[in-house]
Amino acid sequence: MLEVKSVNASYGDFQALWDVSLVVNAGEIVVLIGPNGAGKTTLMRTIVGLHRPSAGNVVLDGHSTARLDGCELVERGVALVPEGRKLFGGMSVLENLEMGAYTARARQARAQTLAWVWQVFPVLAERRRQIASTLSGGMQQMLAIGRALMSLPRLLLLDEPSLGLAPLIVQNIFDVVNLVNRKGVAVLLVEQNARAALEIAQRAYVMERGRIAGQGTGAELLSDPNVRRAYLGYISTGKNLAEGT
């Protein structure tokens, strides 16, 4: 459904993506891991048209998106939950969700989708009149995901949704990602929380310094010694540093 073909992307003189290729098939959960500054966010933004590639192509359902305006991608079923949530801070919870259903396609089904989002995130329903910027971090993240779901995506992109959140809420968010995927939505997930992400992933990519440095099934990467050392907190003796503290 999504093919990223040999994409380069730059900020002025600085090239952030080098010949990046990646595929997400219909119905899959694909995870992208990598250290800070690897270019994960840049790749996500390039996929949704907020950033233009300097070379290469983003292909959706067999058609290049190069000529599409940023606002047209959501019509074609691509939704991004951006890094840092980027909610409409002055608007209420309900208004944020209504804005999620801005496209003609989503607007028709708004009432049903909204009922479903309330069901997925009951705490949001309780606070539907609250102004988004006054919500806690966890609820803001739920709202950001809810807003993306309101557009009825076929491909959901999430950029570090668990960043800075309590473990219980992180678990909740991973559960929701699974739930949405079982409804037939393909997922591309960028995560720092590599273990939890690789566990739910069918396939995964590792990104380092603007390049794809490795790929495989979730299980393959979970057992890959390099990945374990770099992203899962293991040292070669097998002792888990993260769990040891």
């Binding site: 305006d69 909610l87 409409f88 804005m99 801005y102 807003r147 309101m150």
Partner: peptide, 23 residues
């Protein structure tokens, strides 16, 4: 909807694009 799109653009223009607003 148009008015809300204007407020959304004022708040966070990139997110406005993401939900399909032609800013």
């Amino acid at each position: 909807y148009l008015g809300k799109a204007i407020r959304a653009t004022a708040d966070e223009w990139e997110s406005a694009i993401l939900v399909g607003v032609n800013i």
